[in-house]
Design a protein around this nucleic acid. Structure first.
Lengths: 193, 193
DNA sequence: CGGCTAATCCTGACACTGTAAAGATGCGAG
DNA sequence: CTCGCATCTTTACAGTGTCAGGATTAGCCG
């Protein structure tokens, strides 16, 4: 029964992981700051010093979430056969992240709770967007192609995260990937050859 | 200063319109049942009799929202030059609804608060989905085409509702529509001609 | 090594929220 | 006219976010 010391040591990190648990279990709309503090074994006002208020905590969590999102895409792009395949894999990574962490996905894309004007979060979001633009530019695409690839990837991911697209849920992983590859291919700039 | 009678008369409808106001101003995540009751000029426990709890009210609101969503699409489809144009117009209506009522859009597509297993809401959602399937079927498309059109339409709408797609925000309405038409066209079954 | 400052964390308080229970009101059927 | 019951209010309780003030201790300077 080691008495917990008055000073936690690394409460900021502990709160972030506790916050992610809370988010996963309760969703963005059921997220409670006091509950997060309980998970971390700390008083209900402890988070204030590190994150200000609930918005601050969710903003920090969203920032971390965005980099994890990008990491998932990057990991998927590894081993691409060509630039087109690479863009398609990015879209598959988009979906993979949405299915693996639906609550975090909603936090960074479909919530109004984080402060998306916060510099860190803004930078993380822009990083992901710039990466997408790079993928399309490599294929010789323009603004329209960026919108096409992003919107379609996002649509599939968001609808899947919310369990809205039952057509895809019914399919086997192989069939699913094949269909999505077909859909995403249409969004890429026309391949001349 | 007419004293409000003890019995409202049509409180259920009044609560629904008050709830939509609340949703528009505070968003799904700031939605408060007590605040809705205040808007309707009624005690905080009055909604319980008509809707049970907050979930019940949001479920009813989502059901209404879904039919309004479909109405917006239908209105846009009127005057289509051909079946392809009709499908594209449906996608434009999808976006129109998301921009006109972003909070309601999020409620029906990106929230976990309503009870999507409730028969009425389920029916309203299925009605919209069936309509989409019909549009694609008319063009001779299959499952893949349904996914393509839906995901892309939804992606554009959701990202726009959340102010994430600044590329589109910058454009004029005419440019915007032209780009979206181009993107949506790629999602339709190949036109043999 | 001693002491001071400031960061860290806790306690207590307030207003607000959702929901349940029980009482008040009045519509409408008989 | 009266009584039942749907409707609405009042009251109460647990939970939430946030602020103010107090307790603890780490780190630094002498």
């Amino acid at each position: 029964m080691a008495e917990r010391p008055y000073h936690h040591g690394d409460l900021r990190a502990a709160l972030l992981t506790a916050a992610e648990e809370e988010l996963t279990e309760k969703g963005v709309e059921g997220f409670s700051l006091r509950s997060v503090a309980k998970r971390a074994g700390v008083s209900h006002a402890a988070p204030a010093h590190h994150f200000g208020d609930t918005v601050g905590l969710l903003t920090a969590l969203a920032t971390e979430g965005f980099t994890r999102f990008q990491d998932t895409l990057d990991a998927r792009e590894v081993g691409a056969t060509d630039d087109r395949d690479r863009a398609v894999r990015a879209g598959l990574g988009y979906l993979e992240f949405a299915l693996a962490r639906p609550a975090l996905f909603r936090l960074i894309f479909s919530s109004a709770r984080p402060d998306f004007a916060a510099p860190d979060l803004l930078a993380a979001a822009n990083r992901a967007y710039d990466h997408l633009v790079g993928l399309v530019a490599t294929l010789g695409g323009g603004e329209t192609d960026v919108i096409a690839l992003w919107a379609t990837s996002h649509g599939i991911a968001d609808l899947s995260a919310g369990q809205k697209m039952r057509t895809l849920q019914g399919k086997s992983p192989e069939e699913r990937e094949a269909m999505i590859r077909a859909v995403l291919s249409r969004c890429l700039p026309a391949s001349d050859g």
